[in-house]
Structures are given as C-alpha cells and as structure tokens.
Simulated assay, not measured.
Amino acid sequence: MKTVDPVSVEIMQQVAEYFSVLSEPTRLRILSVLRNGERCVQDLVEATATSQANVSKHLKVMLQAGILSRRTEGTSAYYSVQDDLTFELCNLVCDRLASRIELQARRFRAFGLTSGQVLKRSV
C-alpha cells in the first residue's frame, strides 16, 4: 500500500481560507454576475441589490484571495474572474446539490405514495 505524505498545516490553512471565501452568499452572487464578463462596481451593486460598501468589502476579499482581478479606467474599477476554474468548482458543487435534492424529492414522492396507499386501505 502506498503511503501518502501528510499535507502541511500551512497548505491546509490556505485551502480552508479559499473555501471560506466562496462560502459567503453575497460573494457567490457577485461571481454569478461576473460569469457573464467584467463588470464595474456600480453594475455589481445594482445586480446584487446591496450597498456599494458591502460589494466593495466582498470584492476586496475575493481580490486578495486571487479569485478576481481588477483594472481601473478613469474613476471606475472593473472586476473579472481571474480563473475560470472557479466556475467549474461552483458547477461541481451545484451539480452535487441538485443530485441530492433530486434523490430527496424521489424519496418524498415514494413516501407520499406509500402513505397514500396506507390511507386508502384504512378508509
């Protein structure tokens, strides 16, 4: 059996921090808007229906994590996703959640059919 080298604490910390950046709903909404390409801060404020201060705070976090890139044009700042792998990761998670929800829905339907049959018999 092949032994696996233990991963350093520092690497684990970096991975955990990356996932924590993606664990905030407002940040996911921002990423969803940026899926269609670069946007200025005002576009992101309008699309997410939140304050400019809040959007700016989340943009800063994602920029520092290396998820976003930023460019300025005049007095406007434009943001885009630096790595499309971010979208692949989100797609994988969404597909997994959809599969779980579909399975749960099938179980509810099966339970409903079973319960319905029991009720008909007792009437």
Rank of each mutant, 00 (worst) to 15 (best):
M1E: 08
D5F: 06
D5S: 10
V9A: 09
V9S: 11
V9G: 01
I11S: 04
M12N: 11
M12D: 05
Q13H: 06
Q13P: 00
V15L: 07
A16Y: 09
A16H: 10
E17G: 03
E17W: 02
V21G: 00
T26F: 03
R27T: 07
R27L: 04
L28A: 00
L28S: 01
I30R: 04
I30V: 15
L31H: 04
V33D: 06
V33M: 11
V33A: 15
L34H: 02
N36C: 01
N36V: 03
N36Q: 06
G37K: 00
G37P: 06
E38H: 02
R39I: 01
R39V: 01
C40G: 14
V41P: 00
D43T: 05
L44G: 03
V45K: 10
A47G: 13
A47L: 09
A47F: 04
T48A: 05
T50G: 07
S51I: 04
Q52I: 10
Q52V: 10
V55A: 02
V55T: 01
V55M: 02
S56E: 15
S56V: 09
H58L: 00
L59C: 08
K60T: 13
K60M: 08
V61C: 01
M62K: 06
M62N: 06
M62F: 08
L63M: 10
Q64K: 14
G66N: 09
G66C: 09
I67R: 02
I67G: 03
L68K: 07
S69V: 08
R70Q: 13
R71G: 02
E73Q: 15
G74W: 08
T75Q: 13
T75L: 12
A77D: 15
A77P: 07
S80V: 00
S80F: 05
V81T: 13
V81R: 11
D84P: 12
D84S: 13
L85I: 02
L85G: 14
E88K: 06
L89F: 14
C90T: 07
N91H: 11
N91A: 13
N91D: 15
L92M: 13
V93T: 06
D95K: 10
L97C: 08
L97D: 10
L97M: 13
A98K: 10
A98E: 10
S99D: 14
S99H: 12
S99N: 15
R100H: 11
E102K: 14
E102N: 12
L103T: 11
Q104H: 12
Q104G: 03
A105R: 15
R106D: 15
R107E: 12
F108T: 08
F108C: 07
R109C: 05
A110F: 00
F111D: 06
F111V: 03
F111T: 10
L113C: 09
L113I: 05
T114G: 01
T114I: 04
G116Q: 04
Q117V: 04
K120E: 13
K120V: 12
R121K: 13
R121F: 00
R121C: 06
